[in-house]
Amino acid sequence: MGRRDYAILLLLAKLGLRADEVATLTLDDVDWRASEILVRAKGRRRARMLIPPDVGAVIVAYLRNGRPKSSCRRLFVRPHTRARRRLCFRMCDHHDRQGRSRSRWNRRLRTPRFHIFRYSLATELLRSGATLSEIGQLLRHESHDTTRIYAKVDIDALRTLSLPWPGDVQ
Rank of each mutant, 00 (worst) to 15 (best):
P164K: 09
T24F: 09
H80N: 01
R64S: 15
S133P: 00
E134K: 07
T26N: 08
A157M: 07
T131H: 10
Q98H: 01
V60D: 15
R108T: 12
R110V: 00
Q98V: 05
A7S: 13
H94D: 04
L125G: 03
L38S: 08
S101F: 05
T111M: 03
N106K: 03
Y6F: 13
S103V: 07
V39K: 08
T26E: 07
A122K: 02
L27I: 03
R84H: 01
R159E: 12
A130F: 05
R33T: 10
I155Q: 12
R108S: 08
D29N: 12
A13L: 06
L139H: 11
I116V: 15
L11D: 03
R44Y: 15
S120I: 01
F117Y: 09
R140F: 12
D145Q: 15
V30R: 03
I116P: 01
L87I: 00
V22L: 03
L15C: 04
T81N: 12
G66M: 10
R18T: 00
K152V: 05
H115W: 05
P164E: 06
W165S: 06
R118P: 02
M49H: 14
S128E: 04
A151V: 02
P112N: 00
R159G: 02
D28L: 10
R33F: 06
M91C: 00
K42R: 07
T123M: 04
F89E: 05
R113Q: 06
P53M: 12
R78G: 04
I59C: 14
S162C: 09
H94G: 11
I59R: 07
A157W: 04
Y150S: 01
K152D: 00
I155R: 13
D93P: 03
P68R: 15
I135W: 06
T147L: 03
L138D: 00
R45I: 07
A19H: 02
V30C: 07
Y6M: 01
D31A: 01
R86S: 00
S128V: 10
D93M: 08
I155A: 11
A57V: 12
Q137C: 02
G43N: 14
